[in-house]
């Protein structure tokens, strides 16, 4: 096991779209172990994505089981080639990122999602996630697509007009 270096803004590798994983071998498992060690070493991160350590592959670790205030969660998850296949609702929440130190900001995310992904053995799984865990997964999948939460920041005034934002958003979804 080894600690990996976390890439930080403005490293251009954070903006790349990651490749699909096709080989489910021992090397993949060893990398996942290193990625987990790296996640745990930092400041209480609930998730980490492979591109954050410079590996441009669609791999995410998520663990929302240890939040200060308990939230609905699926425990410790290793998600290979995760894909969000359904979205519903909108929610404003505060995010920070291991790759963007010393900054937090508000981002709008889908409230509920359905995710299809593979495990390190290549088996298929589906998860339905809500609230905080859904938010965390969307943050990590963004990393796989070269998007950081600062690319999705909303103005502080958005808070005041949140209801309007919700209505517009849900109409768009319904259409």
């Amino acid at each position: 096991m080894a600690m990996l270096e976390i890439l930080q803004l403005p490293d251009p590798r954070l903006k790349e779209v990651a490749e699909e994983v096709t080989r489910f071998d021992e090397e993949l498992k060893a990398f996942i172990a290193d990625l987990e060690e790296t996640r745990q070493a930092g400041p209480a991160a609930v998730g980490i994505a492979a591109p954050q350590v410079g590996r441009s592959q669609r791999i995410v670790i998520l663990d929302c089981s240890k939040t200060k205030k308990p939230v609905e969660n699926h425990g410790h998850l290793i998600l290979v080639n995760p894909e969000i296949i359904e979205w519903d609702g909108f929610e404003l929440g505060r995010e920070g990122c291991l790759s963007v130190p010393d900054y937090t900001g508000n981002v709008i995310r889908a409230e509920r999602i359905k995710v299809r992904s593979q495990d390190p053995q290549g088996e298929n799984h589906e998860f339905e996630m809500v609230g905080f865990e859904a938010r965390a997964l969307q943050h990590e999948v963004d990393h796989l697509d070269g998007i950081l939460f600062i690319d999705r920041l909303v103005s502080r005034r958005t808070d005041l007009f949140q209801r309007k934002v919700y209505q517009k958003g849900s109409k768009k979804r319904d259409a």
């Binding site: 930092g42 991160a45 609930v46 980490i48 929440g93 995010e95 920070g96 990122c97 905080f132 965390a136």
Partner: peptide, 8 residues
């Protein structure tokens, strides 16, 4: 409401 800031 409590704000749980997500770090990921």
């Amino acid at each position: 409401s409590a704000i749980e800031t997500l770090i990921g």
